[in-house]
Design a protein around this nucleic acid. Structure first.
Lengths: 142, 142
DNA sequence: TTTTAAATGCAACAATATTGCATTTGCAAA
DNA sequence: TTTGCAAATGCAATATTGTTGCATTTAAAA
């Protein structure tokens, strides 16, 4: 069985056209995607609202994690296999390219060692590094 | 002269009613505020669009810095006096309360020492710690 | 006081997200 | 294979947030 269907099966989600299409998009891109990017350019002819709901159910199931981009758009990215449903282990950094707007996850960097003192009861820490991605850096040189 | 007017003077901005009202709001609250919070509850009867433009000009002048909240809303917070116009020195952490949605700045923590390896050309790093603020923690205990 | 560039206020518009509800569909059980 | 039903879809309607254009008003310098 193809990968997308397997993932849906493993998360007890029904196999539908939209879900397959959305999942394939995330599997073939290596960066975070917004609902807008999906229904406007990546998987056209799919219902906008259904895509919204698909993303929500994927987040609830632990397939995708949500990232709020510094430019305000909400994006999603594939979770590592360790993510159980509803709880996400986002111990990695997100890289945001201020030129093209893409967000990439870096699974290498472990931020769990960061020690922050405060009177907050901290649950999780998000780090977003902003700059130019390698692609935009390349095209700038030319 | 009152503090709000002084700040406007120092940043070469004309003194207007809306600007005074917005600035006073930020001076009296110790957390980040969104445009919506301002025109819907804090300073009612001020024009919505003018508030947008006021926030933009304050950001350009280095009075406020913009923070994208994990919930997607865009908020602003007072800069430390070191912020020149257009460039912001955001070397501090933001705390986001997942219960009440408020964002607080912690000027103590200096993130400039964080060393991240990547093929990104990193300009700045944002850290957002999520959890429950002391206020929500207190009310939970009751 | 006069002048003028800046700021305002309103309308119009655009993009994004949510909800309700009738219809369709996946899929498990018969 | 067929049936039944909860889940998912698709459309309309609505809400929220942010932007732009333009005529009018205003701050503040001359």
């Amino acid at each position: 069985m193809e990968q997308a269907k397997l993932i849906l099966k493993n998360h007890n989600l029904k196999i539908t056209k939209t879900r397959i299409a959305v999942l394939k998009a995330f599997l073939s891109y290596n960066n975070a995607l917004s609902s807008g990017e999906l229904y406007k350019s990546i998987i056209r002819n799919f219902d906008r609202i259904t895509i919204y709901r698909t993303l929500q159910s994927f987040e609830n199931s632990g397939i995708l994690h949500k990232i709020t981009s510094p430019d305000g758009t909400i994006k999603f990215a594939l979770c590592t296999p360790h993510c159980p449903s509803k709880h996400h282990y986002e111990k990695h950094i997100h890289f945001y390219c201020t030129n093209c707007g893409k967000i990439y996850c870096d699974e290498e960097f472990d931020i769990s060692e960061l020690n922050i003192k405060s009177d907050f009861a901290i649950n999780s820490i998000q780090i977003i590094a902003e700059g130019w991605c390698w692609k935009c850096n390349e095209s700038k040189k030319i």
